[in-house]
Design a protein around this nucleic acid. Structure first.
Length: 371
DNA sequence: AAATCGGGGTA
DNA sequence: TACCCAGATTT
């Protein structure tokens, strides 16, 4: 067994390492609680390198809670476009309004008040409280979970139940110190740079002599890999209609659920042939299609689904777009929140001329084969 | 406790 | 291909 060192020594080693090795990230150049909040939400289940450009654009455009509370929802969703987990953007809008209304425009200092805000869970509340306000609150993300499980030799599942409780308890002990923000970020940074999931760089670790997993050679079995449900295969058909050569019919998704609040091509269940698409569009959306032809196919992989998508191009649609439907100019697409899969569908199915005019923001992945 | 919600990097 | 990423929310 590794010898259990007193918490103060462990803290000192962690913070010293962090001070010497911390990356220079945009949100570490400020102590503005609002900026910390934005970064923490964007970083939920999202890699640092992905977040950086989104974070910088977001803070430049909405530099304060008040600015965000006054923002147009579609503008914020457009700024979030491509980042994924769009509920985060909707929650931030709701939380900003709540902070202005109930807290005078300043984020609350206490974890108990923070967790009441939309989009704040235990982690985000603890991160903001400790980093922005110096509160002695733990903040356990995936990095901390893994790192503490290894240091303390916490066996079994640590994502829930007793394993999770044990991790949070140790995190709370460590964060009960004079520099909880640095301590929490030290654990996070150690997990991101050294105590990585597959091949941890134990020789670089400042606390390896205090680590149960290292002492017992169990770095790769603690924590155990998570078993994930198999992806559900879903077939769907997207309908592309361009009117007057430059206006596209899009449909806003309900706020809850997949792509909540974002604008997508009208979607139909199943891989429909031209006749089937015409029938289903009338049944589901109440408008008629003619001249339906297959335009492209593509595949999109989400966390729990594999989407097999057929894109058909047609004429028709509603005489007047109403409700969730809207005709949007190709040149105005950048003003709307559009999920990556819809952007990919448009890239694949628009004509080269239309594609040149469409203001589609860059995504990393754009692989699709013409149908 | 389990399912759902994006998208992409990495081995 | 499989896993994971500075998680939150609903069922």
């Amino acid at each position: 067994m590794a010898k259990r060192v007193p918490a103060p020594l462990l803290r000192r080693a962690l913070v010293a390492w962090y001070t010497a090795n911390r990356r220079d990230l945009p949100w570490r150049r400020t102590s503005d609680p609002y900026a910390v909040w934005v970064s923490e939400v964007m970083l939920q289940q999202t890699r640092v390198d992905t977040v950086i450009p989104y974070y910088e654009r977001f803070l430049e455009r909405w530099p304060t809670v008040e600015a965000l509370a006054d923002a147009d929802d579609d503008d914020v969703r457009a700024a979030w476009s491509g980042l994924g987990y769009y509920r985060r953007a909707n929650s931030m809008l709701a939380a900003a309004a709540q902070i202005v209304r109930d807290h005078g425009g300043a984020l609350p200092h206490d974890v108990d008040a923070l967790v009441k805000l939309p989009g704040f869970g235990r982690y985000t509340a603890g991160a903001v409280a400790s980093i922005a306000y110096g509160k002695r609150a733990p903040a356990v993300d995936g990095n901390v979970q893994r790192t503490l499980a290894r240091i303390f030799g916490i066996d079994g599942d640590v994502t829930s139940g007793p394993g999770s409780k044990a991790v949070w308890n140790q995190a709370a002990i460590l964060a009960n110190c004079d520099e909880p923000g640095d301590l929490n970020q030290a654990l996070i940074e150690l997990g991101a740079l050294v105590c990585t999931p597959r091949n941890p760089a134990c020789e670089q670790c400042p606390v390896r002599t205090d680590c149960v997993a290292y002492a017992e050679g169990r770095q790769t079995s603690i924590p155990p890999p998570r078993v994930r449900a198999k992806k559900k295969e879903v077939e769907l058909t997207m309908v592309l209609i361009v009117r007057h050569g430059d206006h596209l019919l899009l449909e806003r998704q309900p706020d809850d659920g997949l792509f909540g609040g974002l604008w997508c091509l009208p979607m139909l269940e199943g891989h429909l042939d031209p006749a089937g698409a015409a029938d289903e569009a009338l049944r589901r959306h109440g408008f008629e299609l003619d001249g339906v032809e297959e335009a492209a196919e593509l595949e999109a992989i989400l966390t729990h689904r594999r989407l097999r998508i057929r894109i058909v191009r047609a004429h028709g649609g509603p005489a007047r777009a109403s409700g969730a439907m809207k005709w949007i100019a190709l040149e105005a697409l950048e003003d709307y929140g559009i999920p990556t899969v819809t952007v990919r569908a448009l890239r694949a199915a628009l004509t080269p001329d239309e594609r040149a005019r469409a203001t589609l923001k860059d995504r990393r992945n754009a692989g699709a084969r013409p149908g």
